[in-house]
Design a protein around this nucleic acid. Structure first.
Lengths: 344, 344
DNA sequence: CTGAAAGCGCTAACAG
DNA sequence: CTGTTAGCGCTTTCAG
């Protein structure tokens, strides 16, 4: 099928003007008479003229679009963040292209390659769990391709970053469990080398230490795919519950880890919080409707998306190379519900 | 910031060839010697050359990207559908641009305008609840812009459509409630003129009729924003529960209607299914974890996305105008859980 | 105030 | 087998 849209040429021909005059009239240039301007503007509006983005992109060496690389949009945290990103981007005249990695390293590299090769003017990224080599990002970035990290931040990258205080979120969540009377607290983590995994683990450990509870290595479980795959969560919890001294509470340090933990308990009929209490990271907006209602650490996802986009667009539109980088750290929110009730 | 990517010209200069030779070598043209081809290919790979999409788009009058217009990606049905769409699109070398309407008519029109003005080669759309004038779609479509409808299908549009059997889904869900012993069954609907609203309402009515239950107009409530706004659901249920003869069960005919109904009952401490039983449309993958576990009508979202994309790409790539249109209707899946348990 | 012409990166006649 | 050239739609000097 072919779809012929209106071009400047069409307008020029119809109005017996040159294309350059039309172009100038459309961008309200001072060199064009008011009369001609009105004529062109009116006609363009009638035909519903829109400049061809490909032509503009070719000419201006920019596409006025930005890319987002996330693990999966079906994750509530990311879909909320994307809403924030879109709101800012559209306000500033940018289009948004979303790419998913599904936690797969090769897909992430391919997506970045594709996006950077002039499809977009810059990129927001939350790296996949599989990613522990950041060459594909660093390399592009060094060559001048603007990148802003959010959520899962890459330490080795010198650019703007937006994240939450993962240490604090984990610290507060763990402290809450301790204050509710739990002492044998396990932690279910995403993959080991991810920055947020480490930060959350450190917050967890610090909370234990501050309350004179020693950290038990057996109570720490990693999931390579960040809980995206149910089986990895199942295996981890199975192991925890086979221990001689079983944990009486757990802190799940990621969205999918949390929901899959809930699924596990439902399937195996494990009572929460009687058998095991839980608080975990989650941005689902129906956690209060779960059985039992779920205590969560919630991230300001929409806000993060907005801020990250502001930073990215500023970088893209900056005349000179940016050398001063922000690392914005937002506070998480702890919402206590039934799943981490005071121990009887 | 500027990001200079490799062009054909760079390769040509470095290898002392003409740009056309390089171009041909890259596309493996038969007119180029094996030797030159290898040389070019090797060098291009080294520099990680990628053709400039803007230039290609300008030249070929196609962008190799497609648009998706949905109400919101944070809706599990849509994020699953988008996954299906992306899987097919990427396989066939297309990029995907997502636009959200947030159930707003103006945003839908603006999005379609933007996408059609040469940003994308075609578009998948599930119309917003506010949309009851389809001129913006019909007009573009008549001008040769390929559009495929999915989920919320536009009857007046002569093109490919992919939906589920909404009548059947509602019929089966309602029948299930009846067979569980409920007789005073209400229905919570999205906005009135939406095709899926009508189909689901018809299925609902037919199920009642087939079991000799008369349809009670008081038991039918519409929500203008499809349940996106909690307050509209709250108002509707408030009214239902103020009736002299209160319903003992309800069929919620949309994703957000279902979850917001659950939220209502949780907030007002209304026991499900004792006080009121419920089955509703939902594609959330944690409905089994809700309290009580939720009976749902589930749509094959991923599948729908895939099929719709196949149809769209076929249309885009078709040499001659497409005149024969498919309306693919997929079966919904009914999953019975505790929220619609047999009445005691 | 307006027009002609060049060029962004790429492909495809058309020439050699 | 390879190079030259024109043109996709647009902006922007440079000339009038």
């Amino acid at each position: 099928m072919k779809f012929e849209a209106v071009t400047i040429k069409d307008i020029a021909k119809a109005l017996a003007l040159s294309t350059s005059t039309v172009s100038r009239a459309l961008r309200d240039s001072y060199e064009i008479s008011e009369e001609t301007k009105q004529l062109v503007l009116k006609y363009a509006k009638e035909l519903n003229y829109r400049p061809n983005p490909s032509a503009l992109g070719l000419k201006e060496k920019r596409t006025r679009s930005i890319g987002i690389v996330v693990s999966e949009i079906a994750n509530s945290f990311f879909s909320q963040a994307i809403n924030g990103i879109e709101s800012v981007a559209h306000n500033r005249g940018y289009n948004v292209i979303i790419a998913q990695t599904l936690e797969n390293y090769e897909r992430e590299v391919a997506n970045m390659q594709f996006l950077s090769s002039r499809s977009v003017d810059g990129c927001l990224i939350s790296v996949s769990t599989e990613t522990n080599d950041f060459f594909h990002i660093n390399d592009l970035y060094r060559k001048g391709f603007p990148v802003v990290c959010f959520d899962r931040v890459v330490d080795s990258l010198e650019t703007h970053k937006v994240s939450i205080d993962n240490f604090l979120g984990a610290y507060d969540a763990t402290t809450h469990l301790i204050k509710s009377g739990y002492k044998k607290i396990a932690i279910l983590s995403s993959i080991e080398y991810l920055s947020i995994t480490k930060e959350r683990l450190n917050g967890f450990k610090k909370a234990l230490a501050d309350h004179n509870i020693s950290f038990n290595e057996d109570y720490l479980k990693y999931c390579a795919h960040g809980g995206l795959v149910y089986e990895e969560v199942e295996k981890a919890i199975d192991e925890l519950l086979k221990l001689k001294v079983k944990p009486d509470a757990i802190f799940t340090s990621g969205d999918k880890l949390t929901t899959n933990f809930m699924r596990y308990c439902k399937t195996k009929k494990i009572a929460i919080p009687d058998k095991i209490a839980v608080i975990g990271f989650s941005n689902l907006d129906i956690t209060e409707l779960l059985s039992p209602s779920l205590s969560v650490v919630r991230q300001p996802a929409y806000e993060m998306g907005k801020i990250a986009t502001e930073l990215l667009l500023n970088m893209i539109e900056s005349k000179r190379p940016v050398t001063d980088f922000d690392h914005i750290v937002l506070p998480p929110e702890i919402i206590v519900r039934d799943s981490s009730l005071r121990k009887k």
